[in-house]
Design a protein around this nucleic acid. Structure first.
Lengths: 345, 345
DNA sequence: AATTAGCACTTAACTAAAGAGATTGCTAAA
DNA sequence: TTTAGCAATCTCTTTAGTTAAGTGCTAATT
């Protein structure tokens, strides 16, 4: 249990350290704090905080820096999100103000904005599309033996892929295949479709195509791509700013983590509270030992909930970041509601 | 004009330095060279080479490293491409051996292979598609007011984009627009199409659509994307390996260069000789001061010529790299010819 | 005329020592 | 409970000295 004064000190340690990056000493605190006590008193309190594992020294006679647990306490009990600066609000609103023709454009743009605002790396995920169902399938002949396969889900997501066909497949054959797919599979969830694709479909499709394997590959491909939650990333390069002592290997690990959709989905995890903070080794992934992740959901009513996140050094100014993320989730939700309103009705 | 012996020395300096990264001294050379002269003689020759600007010192009493001009001389007159290691050939052939359904998959895969082989960053560009002409245009209604625009060029490239339409556009309207586009624009080169899109088309299209601007935007978008030469990049992260003294800023510049299609097209430039080397500040772009670029064309007969390239530190083992690039361009050409043979006939 | 041995000189890289500055924990007094 | 005072600890910077590698030049040698 922390006394008021200890909380005040912990808050100051976190704030100073996240601002300056330099360990915080008792004298500086004594001068800065609103209460009137000597540095010796601060020292005693700091020793107590250290006993509780909330702050630590970098060497035996150094000032203190927050431990992961200290950050955790700070984030859970002490921090107050900064109010948004007018400039930042302007920036958000003007960047989201344009005319968009696709949800994905808004979401992708959001990642860029968020990374610019924070100067960290940002992730955005569009309103959930899991449990989405297959709502349509097309094969469009493009001439010259090219065919485009298009898959539409009931949440409005579209995946497509072009492929070449060996034999001269007739338009009728294509139509037959499309009819088959649409008859058998529309309305099922994507995992179910994938399932059937391995069991029922191959036998049936041979009525129309002599060598259906190529086609089945393509369809499976498009399907798994559609089922995957797609993240947008903004400000990848910002990670370079914190590469302490040019630790190339861990940077590489970090980047390959970010570029693998599956892995990053794993890190971000399920949408939790409105806003949640994960600090350093609270994340299982070792590459993230020195980073913190702030995730937030945004809510677009019947259109589901999406997610935004920023990834920066453990030593980030949490109050400012929480303020930014909090404001952004609301602006984004507003923009999306506008968008849906415009196109739905 | 260089004597035989000077050439021998220059060659050895480049080879040693690219291998070890350490300036090369006269004593080491005297020991290593096949001729039997003392280090003092080597020193005299090195002074001569320095006078001609081919090598230089890093400080007043250091060994020598090649200057840009020295590398240039080496590459133009002295280097002999290494023969391919059997392992490397295996790696190339097995990586290119699979079944591909699209040209782009082969080209993209090539970038990965090439970067793995060299441990540098690799670029690949598919057989030229400039002067390609519009061969078809489709609008596919996907339901829920989504429409996909598809554009096909006579070189087999496909670009597509999904967009939402505000009003309930009827299938007939879409067909009318498609007919209009196909009637008026098929057969023209992409720049010509873009031109007409700004002049003739808007007036005509208003017969079918009340507010065509959204559509015109989309079409223009897909069009410019198709007209852009698209590069594939492999081994981006390899650039991190050479970030001397963790020079974050220049790294960032480099990465944003690489990620902008236009910029990188500019750097790679027009296909020149079969294989060409650009060294350090021979490239105008400042971010590339410490890098060298090896570009090579590959030839697929009537299907045109494409390009591959690797980007690594100025101090790269040129003989090995030239061997690799030379071999790869041939393997790639072979693979592509196979591919075309399969699908064309 | 070309080559070589020899040597003074330069520089980077490493090590050691010394001092400055910041901060802590502890003791004893207030 | 708080505080002043102080020794102890540790980092960081500066300075100095040493080593090893390498150069350029001169004078002797081939």
């Amino acid at each position: 249990m922390l006394s008021e004064r200890q909380m005040m000190i912990l808050r100051a340690v976190v704030r100073d350290f996240t601002n300056s990056g330099v360990p915080v000493g008792s004298k500086a605190l004594a001068k800065q704090l609103p209460i009137h006590v000597s540095s010796a008193t601060i020292r005693n309190e700091m020793a107590a905080l250290e006993d509780q594992g909330l702050i630590r020294k970098t060497h035996s006679s150094s000032g203190r820096i927050p431990s992961v647990e200290g950050y955790r306490y700070y984030v859970d009990h002490l921090v107050k999100p900064d109010p948004l600066r007018p400039n930042d609000l302007n920036m958000i609103q003007s960047s989201l103000g344009g005319d968009f023709h696709k949800i994905d454009e808004i979401i992708s743009q959001s990642a860029t904005i968020l990374s610019n605002l924070t100067s960290y790396t940002a992730f955005t995920l569009k309103p959930e599309l899991k449990d989405s169902r297959l709502s349509g399938f097309r094969l469009v002949p493009l001439g010259h033996r090219q065919v485009m396969a298009i898959l539409v889900t009931d949440s409005g997501d579209v995946e497509n892929q072009t492929f070449d066909v060996t034999e001269a497949v007739t338009g009728e054959q294509l139509e037959a295949v499309v009819r088959l797919i649409n008859d058998q599979l529309v309305g099922l969830t994507l995992p179910e479709v994938l399932q059937k694709l391995r069991t029922d479909i191959p036998a049936k499709i041979t009525h129309y195509l002599q060598s259906p394997q190529g086609f089945l590959d393509i369809f499976g491909d498009v399907l798994t791509r559609a089922a995957q939650e797609r993240f947008y990333v903004g400000g990848r390069l910002n990670l370079l700013n914190f590469s302490q002592d040019s630790d190339v290997d861990s940077l590489k690990a970090l980047y390959s983590l970010i570029d693998k959709t599956d892995d990053i989905a794993n890190v971000l995890g399920q949408p939790r509270d409105n806003i949640s903070v994960q600090i350093g080794n609270e994340m299982t992934n070792d590459a993230l030992r020195n980073y913190s992740l702030i995730t937030a959901t945004y809510d677009v009513n019947q259109h589901g909930r999406g997610m935004i996140a920023i990834l920066g050094p453990t030593r980030m100014p949490y109050s400012r970041m929480l303020g930014l993320v909090g404001a952004f989730r609301e602006e984004l939700a507003k923009k999306l509601l506008d968008y849906y309103r415009y196109y739905d009705e």
